[in-house]
Write a protein that binds this DNA or RNA. Structure first.
Lengths: 335, 335
DNA sequence: GTGAAAGCGCTAACAA
DNA sequence: TTGTTAGCGCTTTCAC
């Protein structure tokens, strides 16, 4: 059996209250007893039982993280940001990989409730009405990271995807491009799909006076293969595009592979702009020019926001927008 | 306040023991009371407090995962395997990103002890004497995943890196290569550095009768930049190599980039063999031929092993070796 | 400054 | 089958 507070009390010849005081408010304990207790703690290798503590204090210093797919580059960088910020404030993370499965999601919410987490960070996936309903019942502080929702008024940390889409096109326009296509995420993806597309559309309209964009846009699922086939379709319809804005780095690489196989060179024959600035953007050939999300920072800020929430502080702003920026590498050229 | 077992008892007009029984051993409760209790639970939205349960049962259904860098591709895939297996058996994961910082590591071990985790999975990094000493004091079940140690007799799940190194060279030999270089990890890396190098060395000796290999080997830190500069040095010393075996996919990509910049084409002018089969291997240009570690499976098996351990079962084998295999893509050609 | 005692929410004897 | 009670390890009054 592991030593308990009783064992420490016995060994040092004081009451358990005094031991407790040494751990929580050492200043109010006489120096002599404090030393004796500290010595006993060391000797026994005692550590307090966080379950017992949590049972009383109603705090577990643990938060749940709901994430669609931890193995994905982008998600794991976000988790790292959460973890680093958590570590600094003494918060542990319980990772829940939902696989985008609502049932699994609901199950995790129940587990987290039972484990008495101090809060929950929900990431990446659109926060549906169903989730909002369940979460409301649980009355646990909740922060959205790198996603958003219209189903409730929830604290959120993210970039402004519509603006990012706009800026991406603006960048290409500045580089002299006028025939700009897009490989978008699904339009029913309210997080990284539709908003980026809308930004693209607005930029084409406001900057180039172009309106009928449908033929210049194709769709993928943010993955490599999706980018490949989208580029294939797009190229057959619109062989004269000089640049394509892709809603993810992976799709950008898929597009590049297709073009490469067709004998077209990036960026000499056609420019490709990615999105996310994942690790692969730095190590691909050519290196990807891309719209960077400060994803690690989003993680950090989300955790800080959650901390404020659990501390009962007033939030300065409900939604925090972090700045995206364009990282210039080798996949876009001036024309 | 959240409803407790008392509230349920009161509402359904039974004792708290009966409520407890409904949750744990429903069969021994009369149908009538069971129904009443279940109804009350639903009405109140009651869930049991896992802290209180854990305090008595001495089980938290939570395990700690110590990981050097969660944002890394390889690590997050491993975590996914752990998480999936954990989810199936009702185990939650507390993720601890150690940043390879011994202090942080020691701190996490203390936290996990306090939180009364049922076990710990230690991943990727070599398990040092110091860690072994601390862990031994904590008396918590511990499994190593994708790493090993000579500091203690610990349950382990991994591939056989020496054999994998051997097989990599053997594969290249079968493809007709005789002038084979290597970009190895650091030799003092006892996990993914030295063993793979030793496999390479043995294969060169046994298969090709070559012994003086020093000039043909260079070293990197498993990262892209490390692969780039290692290839640079290697190429200047040994321009006649027909194939280079890299101890990680990232280093392989770094090497390819260097060669590309020198005007050499992979695989036409020189073949490159990677290691890990990370996501980037599938989406690089050319697609990487690589030694695949079943990293997701390693995660799953490690969690299963830990479950057996905490259940007090006898382990069939201390170290479980999972099979590596070579994934043929486009970066190696026959000569 | 210190100790005794109550109690956090639950499970597990023990009686009935 | 059910209820009463002790107690898991700790914090926090409340006296002294």
């Amino acid at each position: 059996m592991r030593p308990t507070i009783k064992d420490v009390a016995k060994l040092s010849g004081v009451s358990i209250s005094t031991v407790s005081r040494v751990m929580n408010t050492p200043d109010i304990v006489s120096e002599e007893k404090r030393k004796r207790v500290e010595e006993a703690i060391r000797e026994l290798g005692y550590s307090p039982n966080a379950l017992a503590r949590g049972l009383i204090s109603k705090q577990t210093h643990t938060v749940g993280v709901l994430i669609p797919d931890i193995s994905n580059n982008y998600a794991s960088e976000l988790v790292k940001g959460l973890e680093d910020a958590g570590h600094q404030t003494g918060i542990s993370l319980i990772i829940c990989n939902t696989d985008r499965d609502p049932e699994r999601m609901v199950h995790y919410l129940e587990i987290l409730k039972q484990k008495q987490v101090d809060g929950i960070v929900f990431t990446s996936e659109y926060f549906s009405e169903e989730y909002a309903r369940i979460a409301a019942k649980h009355r646990v502080p909740l922060v959205l990271a790198a996603t958003h929702t219209t189903a409730a008024e929830l604290p959120t940390v993210k970039i402004n995807d519509e603006e990012a889409g706009f800026d991406a096109v603006q960048y290409l326009v500045k580089k002299g491009h006028r025939e700009i296509g897009m490989i978008s995420g699904p339009k029913d993806d309210l997080v990284a799909g539709l908003p980026r597309y809308l930004g693209y559309e607005r930029a084409c309209r406001e900057l180039l006076g172009q309106t009928d964009l449908e033929e210049r846009v194709d769709y993928g699922d943010f993955r490599y293969e999706g980018g490949y086939t989208a580029m294939q379709r797009l190229y057959h319809r619109q062989p004269d595009l000089t640049a394509v804005f892709c809603a993810s780095d992976e799709m950008a690489l898929g597009a590049i592979t297709f073009l490469h196989e067709r004998g077209l060179r990036v960026p000499d024959d056609i420019s490709i702009l990615g999105f996310d600035n994942t690790k692969i953007a730095k190590i691909s050939l050519p290196k990807l020019t891309t719209v960077a999300q400060p994803i690690y920072q989003i993680g950090r800020e989300a955790m800080k926001k959650l901390n404020r929430l659990t501390a009962g502080e007033e939030l300065i702003e409900l939604t925090t927008y972090l700045r995206h920026r364009i990282i210039e590498r080798d996949s876009v050229k001036s024309i």
